[in-house]
Design a protein around this nucleic acid. Structure first.
Lengths: 142, 142
DNA sequence: CTCCTGAATCGGAATGGTTCCAGTTTAGTA
DNA sequence: TACTAAACTGGAACCATTCCGATTCAGGAG
């Protein structure tokens, strides 16, 4: 998933490729994998100091609706954004000690059963693990 | 899980059984299964009109720390609270049409594998399904 | 290249959920 | 009944997010 690919998707939808929009994408691509809106804004402002929160949020929402960005509520309450490629996805293990997110290869959906189709049609899911990473566990003496 | 049971737990921890606290528990027991803090406050104020948000939040946090209440972030962004009995738990399927939550019997944890213990010690998890309930699906003509 | 129009941006104000705080009240105990 | 830590109150503070009116701009047509 690189910048050109994303730009193609936007273009295909007839969306304007404004410099701010591209810079937000660059921030997502080049920054750490899970950033808050504020962190993204800070990064974007290096090049465009006048960009507003509104612009960042508006674009993040847009990218979400195109399945190009996913939003995760972390344990500490922060909401963080991540670039992702369409329907592919992965889940996270969140350390309660340092807040770091470890990617988890496991997805529970292949095992899912239990809701009859007539009752509920599943279109999406969310799965998160909480615990302690190796470092923090050692720090807590367990 | 009835009121007396919860009160026993509180008492065992040396926590005061104030009328406001009991009324908050009653609101959780007698109200709908997933309520926002504001809804709980409203319910409590029927009997104690002067109860503040702070009191509601303080008690909800307390009950969470005792594993008597669980908090769920719904798809619409609302945070809702639910009385639950200790380590037992269940998950939810959230309808994107009407917002209703359907209980799901399925829990993915028995199937979980994939993070070596040295790397991450799992202490908790969250699992949510999104989709459309029978009613809303029919409304959308699919 | 220039003009045009809807899309996008900007800055600041408003919103809304949650938390903080200083002062007051109260549950439980001796 | 008196004491003390716990809990409550009301309102202010906080902070992420959204809204809004005015302005600018990207992309397409001529």
């Amino acid at each position: 998933m690189d910048l050109d690919e994303v730009l193609k998707v936007l273009k295909a939808r007839g969306l304007n490729l404004t410099p701010q929009r591209q810079e937000i994408l660059r921030a997502l691509l080049e920054g750490p994998p899970h950033q808050t809106a504020a962190e993204i804004l800070q990064r974007v402002r290096r090049r465009f100091p006048s960009v507003s929160f509104d612009t960042v949020y508006r674009n993040l929402h847009l990218l979400q609706s195109l399945n190009l960005v996913s939003r995760t509520h972390f344990a500490d309450g922060d909401t963080r954004y991540e670039l992702c490629a369409g329907p592919e996805h992965h889940h996270h293990a969140l350390c309660l000690g340092c807040g770091k997110a470890v990617d988890a290869a496991f997805c529970p959906m292949p095992y899912f059963r239990g809701l009859p189709d007539e009752e509920f049609t599943v279109t999406g899911h969310s799965f998160k693990l909480f615990g302690y990473c190796g470092n923090c566990r050692r720090g807590r003496g367990e």
